[in-house]
Design a protein around this nucleic acid. Structure first.
Lengths: 154, 154
DNA sequence: GTCACTGCAAAAATTTTGCAGCGTT
DNA sequence: AACGCTGCAAAATTTTTGCAGTGAC
């Protein structure tokens, strides 16, 4: 709940600098959405950001929150937990394993790694509850997508 | 693409046994959904399972696929990739870190662990593409939820 | 035969989009 | 002053639910 004002200033500055570089406007709503995500350290969804913000900014609309979250995510100012706008995906492989996921196309490849599977969790984590599964998620851009990105001017 | 018939038999038997234990009916649709998820090794979403199945079973409906996937997931016969029916969640913490997530209530706690952050990925994985992030996801039941579950007869 | 399951259609929930007016640059 | 952004409402997308008939036990 404690919020470090200096950190918030720093993160806002990072954001406004990025806006200037990208000719994106700095608006009250955008600043407030960023502050709200910084303030909530419990990985809020769009709805929670929205209701949290309404106390300070009663006129903000849910779609602006969605648009802003996407913008902040695209700029790399915030991240998503799991994937952005992804449907639920299923898998039948119940053996302990890990994933490589391409954040461009969603390609998901299973891999096994004894070293990782044997990892001991810090006591601090084990004390949070009963652990069922420890899984490594490796995120990146797959070779296929890397090829197509090279064609565009990035 | 290669599908091991013996493995499929084994998994179907596991499922039918669970059905008998739980007085759940074994239907053609349920068996076929399970086979389809076993057959797709690319972590399909409900829509993909549905369209894949329609070739064999043209009358199956999308809502049956959804219902069945949820049932299989609840029985522990399949898993989801990320979380089932979860909204997109955001976080402002950009430093490399890991998560404990309660699969009951969605509680997400960040934690740091040098040993994990320093993990070297197998060559097999690094060759899949450009790696941006390696994150450990620990899934379980948090202490709070464990308490409330104890009250029910499980 | 019973009652859980399916398919249909319709609803709920989540996220996106078109548009007219407003506010940042 | 220009034009990107907001809020509204409406649409699109993903997932769930009510109901009458069907099929598993």
């Amino acid at each position: 709940m404690k919020i470090d004002a200096r950190l918030v200033e720093k993160r806002i500055k990072e954001f406004t600098d990025l806006c200037q570089q990208n000719r994106i406007k700095v608006t009250k709503q955008r600043i407030e959405v960023l502050i709200e995500v910084l303030r909530c350290n419990d990985h809020p969804d769009a709805e929670k950001v929205f209701t949290g913000l309404r106390k300070k900014m009663p006129k903000i609309s849910l779609d602006t929150v969605y648009r802003t979250l996407r913008l902040l995510n695209d700029l790399g100012v915030i991240t998503t937990f799991g994937f952005f706008r992804e449907k639920t995906r299923f898998e039948a492989n119940l053996k302990p394993h890990h994933h490589f996921i391409c954040r461009q196309c969603g390609l998901a490849v299973d891999f096994f790694c004894d070293e990782m599977s044997r990892l001991e969790l810090p006591q601090q984590v084990r004390s949070l509850g009963k652990i069922d599964r420890t899984q490594v998620e490796v995120t990146g851009i797959c070779n296929n997508c890397a090829k197509s990105v090279k064609n565009k001017t990035k």
